[in-house]
């Protein structure tokens, strides 16, 4: 991976391959793109999320921190349709009720997710991983006869360069290093052209240099996309964070800038001081 390939996406430039494509029903005129209200999720009586209320603004880059088990991943599970909450509401924009949709429908509405544990399709090549993630008709028959057109090839090429893996395009994804898999997964996220990106621990297992590039990439995406990043690496959070939300025991403990949050006495007690 060479640094020169990275960050060919210009956030201010003309429409690029990775710009989000909005579901026509996505209405963000009131500001937020994501509304989570009063969400409760229990596993055998244990409340992983406890009346969580959280709003993400359109175009915002939000960092979410919190100790292990705070419910960060569970929150993403609720947004992406993997886990149904016991109560509460989740809206994408003002009209799309996420709790009425299943995983593929939510993905197609414009929410993409990178998992905490890197999950790429190991038996497929890097190129094929990106090809499958690409925003296009994903029904069976069109998929059977799908052929890449020039534009789509270019889009995949662009993303290959953005994630710094152009030389590995034919390589089996399973043979990539841990950091490269993380990047490939981010690339798959970009291929979906989502409006809202949920990124769970993107820099776990990355070298210092890779971490820096990830920070640059996420920053470049904000604005045209809304990005929610969960991360334990405080240095990384500090380098990208505008607004930080601290989760603790399934609800929001506090929100604010990194400095405000780090000086908050409750945060120091539950998390940073630990």
């Amino acid at each position: 991976m060479t640094g020169a390939h990275v960050l060919t996406t210009n956030p201010a430039g003309p429409a690029s391959a990775t710009d989000g494509v909005a579901d026509p029903r996505l209405d963000t005129t009131h500001g937020p793109i994501l509304y989570l209200e009063d969400i409760t999720v229990s596993f055998d009586g244990f409340r992983a999320l406890n009346q969580l209320t959280l709003y993400i603004n359109d175009g915002e880059l939000r960092c979410i921190i919190g100790p292990n088990g705070a419910g960060k991943t569970t929150m993403m599970d609720v947004i992406t349709g993997k886990t149904r909450p016991d109560r509460g509401t989740a809206f994408f924009g003002q009209i799309i009720d996420l709790l009425e949709l299943d995983e593929p429908a939510i993905a197609q509405a414009g929410i993409g997710r990178k998992f905490q544990k890197p999950s790429v399709f190991e038996e497929l090549s890097v190129f094929e991983n990106l090809e499958l993630a690409m925003r296009t008709d994903k029904r069976t028959w069109p998929t059977l006869f799908a052929k890449l057109n020039g534009q789509q090839r270019d889009d995949i090429e662009d993303v290959l360069h953005t994630i710094g893996l152009p030389e590995q395009r034919r390589q089996r994804a399973g043979s990539l290093s841990h950091g490269q898999k993380q990047w490939l997964e981010i690339g798959m996220l970009l291929m979906q052209r989502p409006k809202l990106l949920l990124v769970d621990e993107p820099v776990a297992g990355m070298t210092h240099q890779e971490t820096e590039r990830t920070a640059e990439l996420l920053l470049s995406l904000a604005g045209k996309h809304s990005v929610v990043v969960v991360e334990h690496d405080m240095e990384f959070v500090r380098s990208i964070a505008r607004k930080v939300t601290v989760l603790h025991e399934g609800s929001v403990l506090t929100e604010g800038s990194m400095d405000e949050v780090q000086q908050d006495q409750r945060v120091i007690e539950v998390y940073l001081g630990a």
Binding site: P104, A107, S119, V120, K138
Partner: peptide, 12 residues
């Protein structure tokens, strides 16, 4: 190889 992952990129 990764059924739920496939759902999250939008395939039924």
């Amino acid at each position: 190889d990764a059924e739920s992952r496939t759902r999250f990129i939008g395939y039924r």
